[in-house]
Amino acid sequence: MTARPVAIEESMIRGAVEIEKTERGLVPHRLPRWARRQIPDRFMIQTSAESAGVRLAIRTSADVVELDVRARRIAADADTPFPPSVYEITEGGTLVASAGAPAGSRYVFTFERPSGEIVPGPGATVRFEGLGTGAERELELWMPYHDHVELLELRADAPVAPMPEDAALRWVHHGSSISHGYRAVTTTGTWPVVAALRAGVRLTNLAFSGNAMLDPFTARTIRDTPADLITLKTGVNIISGDAMRVRAFRPALDGFVDTIREGHPDTPIVLVSPIWCEPVETSAGPTIQDPSRTEEWSIAAGSEADVEDGKLSLRVVRAETAAIVERRRADGDERLHYLDGLTLYGGPDAAVMPLPDNLHPGPDVQRLIGERFADRVLAGFTTPLQRSRS
């Protein structure tokens, strides 16, 4: 049977907070338009537009599924070829198919030359075949976490309908490039997706590489997004960018939680402190590239003496975050929780599974963090009874 066009219904799209209709299709966004207008730098324009955690949730008996897309990826120049981007299909938490397609457009950006020029290019077709079992299946088609993706047309050789809504826990997560998935090979290897698939929850990933900065527009977006559980993993970007001192960090984190509580007065919120990162464990940021090495390798530009003067290190961020949670719980917010990031990836883990650039987890650590997070955090919130008692 020939694959025929299928209307892409907005109810098929998960992991987005807003869907834009274009002349040719639909663009899922992880920030609403009003928030996108407040983005303060060119790097975040692209990273917040990328499709981390965005997928199509469908029910079909199709053997062949095709998706036409127009995708954009960040690049250092306008010419260097890309490897194909990987699109994946999961069923019941298990990867069942993957296919490659090029990102035809690019966003030209480096921190040394931050032009942010968009170089438009052609669309592409993602084709999956051999899916059919003769029965209807509930499938999720995941977009590449590092691409901005416009959905142009869906085709299949059998009817396709949106996956029905279920009672799965709605998990909203905010974090840095580590949560966005940087250095993972594919989307299903990013730790939030690993965790969501393992625990059987519905993920909305509002992690933005380089930009977990406690921005008020991010807090307002989370405030307005339906959720049964909210997790916030912040600190490392603030240190890496040397964006705050202790004096600013304390009220900024309090205010971020205050804003979210306006829309989620009873929703469990877990503040997750940073995982192990040797350069800034006890020294202050910013993090910089080691000029003595040709490969990416992060070191701290600050010192322990800077921390004594009020700058932030990871050790300070963990202590401050834990103290804020303890105080707010004592004041009555018993649905606010703290998770030490070192329980997800700590010094002993680093000794046997080091970070490849001294800052970001490789694929092995992304998976480790996801599995631990599913078992140690999500498992405690995945039944109505546990949810009501959290």
Rank of each mutant, 00 (worst) to 15 (best):
I238F: 12
P226W: 04
I238P: 04
A195E: 00
T22P: 09
R37H: 13
A350D: 09
A184M: 00
V270C: 12
W276A: 01
A219F: 09
A379P: 01
V325S: 05
D242A: 15
M213T: 10
D349I: 05
G255P: 04
G104L: 13
G100N: 12
E140D: 09
G346K: 05
I58Y: 08
F249G: 02
G302D: 14
R247L: 09
D331I: 00
S11Y: 12
E308K: 14
G380R: 13
I230A: 04
G263K: 09
G341P: 10
T94P: 10
E371M: 00
G53Q: 02
P363C: 14
E371L: 05
V108C: 02
I275L: 14
A49P: 03
L152V: 12
V65M: 02
L154M: 07
T60E: 05
E138N: 12
E153F: 13
M12S: 07
I238V: 10
F381R: 02
G285V: 02
P384A: 09
I39N: 11
V96K: 07
K21R: 15
V307E: 02
M44E: 11
R367P: 06
R155S: 08
G380H: 15
R42I: 08
M353P: 05
E136L: 14
R33L: 06
I89H: 01
I74V: 11
T231W: 01
A323T: 00
D364P: 03
H360R: 08
A212W: 06
R198P: 00
S177V: 01
L271D: 00
V149P: 02
R55E: 03
N205A: 01
W276D: 04
R223Q: 13
T267Q: 08
T60N: 10
A248Q: 13
G235K: 01
A101D: 08
R33Y: 12
A3K: 03
R329Y: 15
V6L: 08
S85A: 15
V270T: 09
V194D: 09
L197E: 07
D349C: 08
A97Y: 03
P279T: 12
E326D: 10
I369T: 00
I238L: 15
R250V: 15
A156I: 02
V317F: 09
A351H: 09
S115V: 10
L385A: 15
P83T: 05
T90I: 00
P291G: 12
V69G: 05
D375I: 13
T221L: 12
D364I: 11
H148P: 10
R4F: 11
P159E: 04
M163V: 05
G104M: 05
D258R: 12
T204I: 07
V172L: 08
G310P: 03
L169A: 06
T80M: 06
V257Q: 01
F43Y: 15
L154G: 03
A57G: 04
V236P: 00
D349E: 02
R24H: 14
P361E: 01
Y107I: 01
V86E: 07
P265Q: 08
D333R: 04
P356A: 06
I45E: 10
I324A: 11
W297A: 00
A351L: 07
E150L: 03
